[in-house]
Amino acid sequence: MHDVVIRTQELSKHFGAFVAVDKISFDVPAGEIFGFLGANGAGKTTAMRMLSGLSRPTSGAATVAGFDVFTQPEEIKRTIGYMSQKFSLYEDLTVRENITFFGGIYGLSDSAIKEKSDLLIEQLGLQGEVKKLVGSLPLGWKQKLAFSVAMIHDPKIVFLDEPTGGVDPLTRRQFWELIYAAADRGVTIFVTTHYMDEAEYCHRVSIMVDGAIKALDTPRDLKQTYQAPTMDAVFYHLARGAQRSAD
């Protein structure tokens, strides 16, 4: 068993009387691809924001890479990468300018940025597009670039908030190859998704309904437990009891 890099204990977030996240507890070991599933409004994004230091939990406890979410959000920010559902690069900057900028705000030295961006451009096969504006690239490439940029400071954990929204299945597949490669290097991947085929790619999957975690296991065991042929069916079985409507 690897070290635990994310640990939450009865972590909750209330907005007034509304309980967005209701006492969630789980451990994520290093190098795992942890799928975080739930319908819209189930509380996934709120949970993820608490873990990434953006939002202060109401109660409970959680550590990310050994840092406390209540007292050490700045240390957490330094050790994690983040890519959101909205495409998160600047379209009016070139490929290299984007890499330089994000490297820069993570405090990388100029020489480190140079080295990193050369490597990254080579890995993604973007040599010909370095001076092109990101806005002119196809969506699949943008997404791969965004993922690589989120990894530029060698984070221990990467949070991906619906990273493959609006991308065709083939590109999604290629994107997941990047994720696997990162996990093989020991990076922990915490990913939310709407696509059930992607849920199958995860090592373990948790399913959130109405702010609470209803199930957490490997995709295979989940299918067995709920006697369902696909993850889609498992999700449907658990989520149809939801009280909250999608927002």
Binding site: E74, R78, Y82, S88
Partner: peptide
């Protein structure tokens, strides 16, 4: 959001 999750 990306900027706010960064240490910046």
């Amino acid at each position: 959001e990306i900027l706010l999750v960064s240490p910046f």
